[in-house]
Design a protein around this nucleic acid. Structure first.
Length: 304
RNA sequence: GCUGGGGUGGCGGAGUGGACAAUCGCAUUUCUCUGUAAAAGAAAUGUCCGAAAGGGCUACAUAGGUUCGAAUCCUGUCCCCAGCA
């Protein structure tokens, strides 16, 4: 049984899934989606699930439709899912291909997150909700001075991070025995896809238009009428939250679309900021004519 | 034409004699990241020198004026909006 894991990451709209499918065929692999939004059932068009392409290819993809869109989903949930999925694939003698644009999810699988087993504490979070960042920091500094001291300026002012920090610190103080953290042991090959800003913005524009043509509006209408709140985590997704003002009669559809395209491009930039820090990634230009061939060669050397 | 209100940075919009290169929001850029990550957060953003601290220069329609000092007061000009004709 192999312990190899092929990772395909990079910016949105660079054709990661298509490349992954291609490689899956060549190397007898299965895909594991590393996408924080495609885990939701019913969020199909807007999150860009490539259902048709996948069906046609007969390649199996794991990681779509894991939860109800009313539920929250976290990296912790993802780790559990992804570890099992990759293991199952490997046991079947196939190559797992982790493909997606959610940097934290990929990191979680590839490097692990030691504190990921600490569950969220809703009561605590509710109590802390009203506090300002200075107060939150003070609390954290009392509970775990080392953690507090190690935070950078940005994170010290980030309520979400501070609250999570407090959550972990108080969990430890409760004297529960932490699960032993085992760093994942994969033999990795990471492929990154990127595109020029100009190219990316064209692609994003086209893709958003296509999704609108495919009926995102109806998809969202259905989700809302089935009782999913605009405030739920799933609906904070790009291409979903933008519609709220439209459905509630505050803006025109054109504004929604423009906003969506703009946000999508900004997201792509943020993704690059994240992925560029991982030195293991072998970068390719998504426009490169010989992209598939070059990637194939690289994979072949690593997975003969 | 008359009367009243107004013209501020890429945009919206504060400021109404000194603490103003100008609150704030948006936008843009760069960045942070160990259970919300398509999330959340930070910094920079007139211009020039500087790594920074800091300093120079030019700016609040436009031209003058008053004043030690003007985005702020006065006058002319141009433009916009509302009411009346």
């Amino acid at each position: 049984m192999t312990n190899k894991l092929l990772v395909i990451c990079g910016q949105t709209g660079t054709g990661k899934t298509s490349l992954a499918i291609h490689l899956a065929k060549k190397f007898d692999g299965e895909l594991v989606s590393a996408d924080s939004r495609q885990v939701y059932k019913g969020l199909d068009i807007g999150t860009g699930k490539d259902l048709k392409e996948i069906e046609k290819s007969k390649i199996k993809i794991w990681g779509y439709d894991l939860v109800d869109p009313k539920k929250n989903f976290s990296v912790g949930n993802y780790i559990r899912f992804a570890q099992k999925a990759t293991l199952d694939i490997q046991k079947n003698g196939k190559l797992p291909i982790l493909v997606g644009g959610t940097g934290l999810f990929i990191k979680a699988v590839v490097d692990g997150i030691p504190t990921a087993f600490v569950p969220r504490n809703l009561k605590l979070r509710n109590n802390l909700e009203e506090k300002n960042v200075a107060e939150l920091f003070e609390i954290l500094a009392q509970l775990d001075p080392i953690k507090a001291g190690s935070m950078n300026i940005s994170d010290k002012l980030n309520p979400r991070r501070l609250i999570r920090g407090i959550e972990i610190a108080s969990w430890k103080l409760e004297g529960k025995t932490p699960r032993l953290f085992k760093k994942p042991k994969y033999q990795l090959l990471e492929i990154g896809l990127q595109a020029s800003l100009e190219n990316l913005s064209k692609k994003i524009e086209k893709r958003v238009d296509r999704r609108i043509g495919d009926g995102v509006e109806a998809e969202i209408k259905k989700l809302i009428s089935s009782g999913i709140s605009w405030d739920s985590q799933s609906m904070t997704s790009l291409g979903y939250r933008q519609w709220r003002n439209y459905f509630e009669g505050r803006v025109a559809k054109k504004e929604v679309i423009d906003d969506w395209k703009k946000e999508e491009l900004r997201y792509a930039k943020r993704q690059l900021t994240w992925f560029k820090k991982d030195a293991r990634i072998n970068w390719f230009d998504s426009q490169d004519e010989n992209l598939y061939k070059s990637v194939e060669e690289l994979v072949k050397k690593w997975y003969p």
